[in-house]
């Protein structure tokens, strides 16, 4: 039982990262109906920007409390990626708004490769160590349960970010416009929603969340490299599909479920008879199962094409 709870904590903190990335996929899909293949690589840039920013800031922040330093790095990296996301959309996707979806998809693959290989040129191919933003300590809880303080912080801050997102989407004018656009693009446009602004805002928001996920991920696992976004990106996409693409709560729940399932499969690999090496295949098996049995995901609505 204890071990199970332990795995659950590990799984949830990983799942929080997936959830943060998955939100970006889902939001962009909501307004543009396309899967932003490069989202996982924006996540990677988030980790590197956090690393460089943290290193640069460290000398100035010697006297700051740790939480302040960590928050500033987190926000800086989020801001950087928000701008990056907006720029990518403007330069690469915007010229393709009315084109076949396949053209946009290929462009997104292009952007993804560009970020990865340009990242390799700039950051080098070898894994780099991520500076520790918060001194890691181990917290023992009930019955000898062990968690690192970072895991707990990740869970708490993620919850705060999700709350913030909820407020933005449900309460702000831009959030309202975003929801309108994803419900009915034509009507939204007719009612005076400025599509370009909303789309930029969506990309900015999604990329910022991915960057937050990246800083958490890097703090949890410490090593980062230019291709680190590929797998988490794909898994987060699976999380989005699991929750129902287009649904924000779906992306959160999907991310958490995926993180937990993946961790449990590895943790109990002996019991299940699945070698731990299959860790990265878990997500795809889940993906194929959902698409077979419930393509609309847990929270998604089925849509029929009008003929």
């Amino acid at each position: 039982m204890n071990e199970f709870l332990q795995q659950l904590i590990n799984g949830l903190s990983l799942g929080a990262v997936y959830a943060l990335i998955a939100l970006g996929y889902t939001m962009v899909y909501g307004v543009l109906r396309f899967i932003n293949f490069a989202h996982g690589d924006v996540f990677m840039v988030g980790a590197f920007s956090g690393m460089y920013f943290g290193r640069w800031l460290k000398p100035f922040a010697a006297a700051w409390p740790e939480w302040l330093f960590a928050s500033v790095v987190l926000l800086g990296s989020m801001l950087f990626c928000a701008v990056l996301g907006i720029v990518i959309e403007r330069l690469a996707y915007k010229p393709l708004r009315e084109r076949p979806r396949l053209t946009v998809l290929i462009t997104a693959i292009g952007v993804s490769l560009l970020l990865e290989y340009a990242g390799q040129l700039v950051f080098g191919a070898a894994p780099r160590g991520f500076p520790s933003l918060i001194t890691s300590t181990s917290i023992s809880g009930l019955g000898g349960l062990q968690a690192s303080n970072i895991q707990l912080i990740v869970l708490v801050v993620t919850s705060l970010l999700l709350l913030g997102l909820h407020l933005i989407v449900m309460r702000s004018r831009l959030g309202l416009a975003m929801r309108a656009l994803s419900l009915n693009p034509t009507a939204a446009r007719l009612m005076g929603v400025n599509t370009n602004v909303v789309i930029s805002f969506t990309f900015g928001l999604g990329s910022a969340l991915a960057a937050a996920g990246a800083v958490f991920y890097a703090s949890l696992y410490q090593a980062i490299d230019p291709f680190m976004g590929v797998l988490p990106g794909m898994k987060a996409f699976v999380a989005a599909v699991l929750g129902g693409v287009g649904s924000l709560p779906g992306a959160m729940v999907g991310g958490l479920i995926l993180g937990v399932v993946e961790t449990l499969v590895v943790g109990y690999s002996k019991l299940l008879g699945i070698p731990p090496g299959y860790r990265d295949a878990v997500a795809f098996v889940i993906l194929i199962l959902i698409l077979l049995f419930k393509p609309s995901g847990l929270f998604g609505k089925t849509q029929r094409e009008k003929v």
């Binding site: 690469a92 010229p95 393709l96 053209t103 946009v104 290929i106 462009t107 693959i109 292009g110 952007v111 993804s112 490769l113 560009l114 990865e116 290989y117 340009a118 390799q120 040129l121």
Partner: peptide, 13 residues
């Protein structure tokens, strides 16, 4: 690969 990626994007546009 950087060149290919750029080529792909520009080509699609």
């Amino acid at each position: 690969m950087v060149a290919f990626a750029l080529l792909l994007i520009i080509l699609m546009i």
